[in-house]
Design a binder for these strands. Structure first.
Lengths: 233, 233
DNA sequence: AAGTGGTCTAGACCACTGA
DNA sequence: CAGTGGTCTAGACCACTTG
């Protein structure tokens, strides 16, 4: 009844979560109002509010004004991923990072690329194909398109010395980022670049970014066999 | 100077974010103290605090007591993924969901599985192999191990009628979840089950869950060719 | 129209950590 | 030890949504 310790919102969150876990509040159930929970826990309503906001963000409960708070019926697994700059990814594994520019051209992109960037017509864009190495071995091969309208400065950058990945991430923050992951079989060209066999299963990471409504870049990163994406610990 | 409107913490967050984007605060720079920002924006310090907490969570800035708030030098792409129950995934695409139990046995798992679940010795576990269908076509083949020590009730469940995926997600909430994604070439067995060609590139989703410190399940979901994982919009 | 979550404020105190 | 972020509280008002 009387709490001797001061409760933090994280404590409240964990206690309420525990009640969901042990079935006190079952899926679909309505939880007490924040104010009542605050009384139960002997804390301020705003503390409960902060706790419930976090549970809502984690997909544990759903909250609606007037409708109250309910335990989600169909829980989803919600995970957070970090995709670092490739150089950092290599170096954080204790390997030596390397980089090779393969090709740099200016051309209108294929319709699929334009669609991904949500731009209507065909306009010249910068295409960069480059290889990231880990301890001298191919690690990630990236095939990138950069909007010259949104990022004209990139014409001046020596992309043989510095990867577009690094330059863009450091100099062109984005406000929106779409990611998708899928698997493909390596074609002959890709297999040659990644020094693997044709047909090998490769994980592909596609990333497209915008600033405001303007497209920055769309990149298809083909990873060497064995590459894994892990959730943030 | 004088704000006529009331600022929400999200507004403050977006304004500070804009300053990072336009270079007012460059990577590595130290931002003003919360209290000074509050004065600039004409709001309470707690409003700024909430805003900065969110920017910190998004990986835009780093905050340290006494050290202040700094713009992260090496931004990471941080994304949130939702992995729904397979049935919901199929049905939300407007397809008809189907399910087939392929095999159900009790045996000690391979060392790799035990290691993933962080259990020391070999103990009997429930192994379930099952196929999820979308409009009658193979969609996801799951190879799952369930801890009979943590989840003894699952012995009583008819896993031919209800998928372990669904039963566990609905009845066994977890407190910790590890996910990993990678690509493999389908072996003959898998290709047969997924009705594809041997060697086809498949995306694999491995998910392992615990409640408290106790292992619940580890599942390897082999997805049919073409499967994509998208970030939450 | 009324109930419930969302947010703000001002002030207070705590907790961590860098100088 | 002093500076800065982290959190709590109590009260107030707003915004959404359901009955």
């Amino acid at each position: 009844m009387t709490e001797t310790v001061r409760l933090s919102w994280k404590t409240v969150r964990d206690r309420v979560h525990a009640r969901v876990l042990d079935g006190t509040y079952a899926p679909g159930d309505r939880l007490p109002r924040d104010e009542d929970l605050a009384e139960q826990f002997g804390c301020a309503r705003s503390t409960v509010q902060r706790a419930m906001q976090d549970l809502s963000l984690s997909g544990i409960v759903e909250r609606r004004r007037k409708g109250g708070t309910r335990v989600r019926r169909d829980p989803v697994t919600r995970a957070t991923l970090d995709i670092p700059i490739t150089r950092n990814e290599v170096e954080s594994r204790g390997a030596v990072y390397g980089y090779q520019l393969i090709e740099q051209t200016t051309a209108p992109p294929a319709p699929a690329i334009a669609a991904r960037l949500e731009i209507p017509g065909a306009e010249d864009m910068l295409r960069v194909r480059a290889l990231h190495l880990s301890d001298g071995r191919p690690f990630v091969f990236e095939d990138r398109w950069v909007s010259l309208r949104t990022v004209p400065e990139i014409r001046e950058i020596d992309l043989a010395a510095q990867s577009a990945n690094e330059w863009l991430v450091r100099n062109k923050p984005y406000t929106r980022c779409d990611l998708r992951f899928y698997a493909i079989n390596a074609d002959a060209d890709t297999a040659g670049i990644l020094e693997t066999d044709e047909g090998a299963a490769l994980m592909v990471i596609e990333r497209t970014t915008w600033i405001g409504g303007d497209p920055i870049t769309s990149v298809k990163a083909l990873t060497a066999p064995g590459y894994q994406i892990l959730t943030r610990s």
